[in-house]
């Protein structure tokens, strides 16, 4: 037993091959992880006035998430209040102007909720992570 523990380990080719494959796979993934395309995105710049005191609480967010798409804009505004800022107006659908309002989360300021309205209709939301 003692002599056995002093022997130099013999490498099994299959095991070494597997180790090399695993390490190459790891390196490929690490290369992807440090690539700028997989890092967090940057927020689109605000247009016009910025209300720096505005944030969205957990309670407000929970209420907002229950509002179905195509509900009225007023219902969403009553819950969320005035926005932190607006993004540049765009037109996604032909003939319909889209307005985008931004609300940073009070409990996670790096994340913001973007709400899209089309006229008086609430179209939907997305979280934007930095």
């Amino acid at each position: 037993m003692k002599r056995h523990s002093l022997e130099r380990p013999t490498l099994n080719p299959l095991m070494v091959g597997g180790l090399v494959v695993a390490m190459v796979g790891l390196l490929v993934d690490l290369r992807g992880m440090v690539s700028p395309t997989t890092a967090g995105g940057h927020h689109e710049a605000c247009q016009g006035t910025v209300n720096s005191q505005v944030t969205l609480s957990r309670e407000q967010l929970a209420q907002l998430l229950t509002v179905p798409e195509r509900d009225s804009r007023d219902r969403v505004s009553q819950i969320a209040g005035a926005p932190y800022c607006q993004l540049q107006n765009i037109q996604v659908r032909a003939g319909v102007a889209a307005e985008r309002q931004v609300y940073p989360l009070a409990f996670d300021p790096q994340t913001r909720l973007v709400i899209l309205y089309e006229g008086n209709e609430y179209a939907g939301y997305r979280f934007s992570f930095q």
Partner: peptide
Amino acid sequence: STPDVPAYIFRLCGLKSGKTGRVR
């Protein structure tokens, strides 16, 4: 899809080679 345009996604077909994952 993009967080900057909520409520919409876009389908693109006919690309010779497409890039997937996060994009800028």
